[in-house]
Write a protein that binds this DNA or RNA. Structure first.
Lengths: 253, 253
DNA sequence: GGCCGCAAGTTGTATATACAAGCATATACA
DNA sequence: TGTATATGCTTGTATATACAACTTGCGGCC
């Protein structure tokens, strides 16, 4: 009969199956269990973690639904090839995306300053009118070719030191993820013709349709960021794949 | 002791928990259980469907993770306010989408015939060259305004009676979902300027950037459909929302 | 050598049972 | 009247058990 002081210390009381999930995720994250490799069988985990098989099974089933694992009946459980990307969230880690497809990522910071929120922006970000917001405009390049314009407004309450960062070494996205847990993301995609300023920043010629991704992130009850990402239609596509009924989604570019 | 001839006929053998999920989804889809309303408790479902509580619990738990239900401990289980849309899959059920926002949906079938696959198409659909494929071109309208061009190639093996359908009463999407279980969906979004034919079909004036959604669906090992959906940028947007760590994704238009 | 079938190990499903935790209502008591 | 308690319902978790379905490899058999 299990007693459960093993898996992890009980700072936050947590369901057992959740602890098992965390145990597995840690092993995947820190590289002890590599992609495509087999992980211990249910029975081995039962013995190692001292929980029932049903509990291990639930943990493994949920991680599979989330895309972290792949299971084959009669064979075993494997770390999924590509870690699941949270749909649109990860898209914006464009630096990684460019590198992954063999490109060379650079970026240029066109603007980084505090501003007073316009009425419209204040409403969008649920802030008092003319409150101070941080504004950053970056362009990301793949071998000198601009592939994304990122136009971000950031809530100073969420990231007070945002303006002090060096965004040529860490992307704003990476920085923001570190300083604030994001609890919700909204986004809207549309196709537009760029205005003149955008066209200049992306070095476009007309006619040049663009994908525009509007994104609002929330951290608890507060809006953390309100952003607009512009992709030249000719140089970028958003793509994805998923299997119905499984729950995992992947969106790559 | 349950025997299970009740819930649904056993055409496709299917796990019990899946039947329970389908039972619930049907009640939600056809409006017997409305958004925000309570649905029967686990114990009531146990009695009604003659399965064990653990099975009902699993079904409800998974539907909750997928965003269809909301559960409150000690209170009950409720139909989620907004039903989750399986990312890009459901988007294309455009008729429902238009009605939901109070529009009036009509569609016109511009083409519906068998063709010989070009080399490129045959490769995309993993079919022998110059094999026969079904080709359908529809335009969907919201109050006479065209909002989507759907250009579909369908694998005759998957839907042999595709050409006989009346696509003014059922959308191709709805029909295809009924005849073949879809196991995987790939899609790519891009922004383009429409060619002249597309521009005519959608009654566009230039310059008119469009969202183009390319979609390939699979049924088992076979490609079921290869489609191109064109949305006028000025009349349509793709949007979504999700909460990290929860598993539910939603994409609405 | 090649084929068949069996056994062991794996995941997948279904059940019965038990208790914990949260909520709402009814009831008893001061 | 107001407050505490009890009860009954709900969902949430954990376990033991059983069997099904599938894969692999081993060994026997032809």
């Amino acid at each position: 009969m299990p007693t459960h002081t093993d898996i992890v210390s009980d700072l936050h009381p947590q369901p057992l199956y959740q602890k098992v999930k965390n145990y597995i995720l840690e092993h995947i994250r820190d590289g002890r269990w590599l992609a495509c490799n087999r992980i211990p069988s249910e029975n081995e985990l039962v013995q190692k973690l001292d929980v029932s098989r049903m509990t291990v099974n639930r943990a493994l089933r949920e991680l599979t639904a989330q895309g972290y694992l792949t299971r084959i009946q009669g064979v075993g459980t494997f770390v999924a090839e590509e870690k699941p990307q949270c749909a649109f969230l990860e898209i914006i880690s464009i630096a990684e995306e460019i590198r992954r497809r063999g490109g060379v990522h650079t970026s240029y910071v066109h603007l980084l300053q505090a501003e007073k929120a316009t009425q419209e922006l204040a409403a969008l970000m649920h802030m008092p009118e003319s409150a101070s917001v941080f504004h950053a405009i970056l362009v990301h390049y793949d071998r000198q070719v601009p592939v994304q314009l990122a136009d971000r407004y950031v809530n100073p309450q969420i990231a007070p030191r945002f303006l002090e960062q060096d965004f040529t070494s860490i992307t704003p996205n990476e920085y923001l993820i570190n300083v604030a847990p994001i609890t919700q993301v909204d986004h809207v995609i549309e196709a537009t013709l760029p205005d003149r300023k955008t066209k200049n920043l992306l070095a476009l010629e007309d006619p040049a349709p663009c994908l525009v991704l509007h994104r609002t992130t929330w951290s608890g009850e507060h809006v953390a960021t309100n952003s607009r990402f512009v992709y030249p239609g000719s140089r970028y596509r958003l793509g994805g794949r998923f299997k119905p009924d499984s729950i995992s989604h992947r969106l790559v570019t």
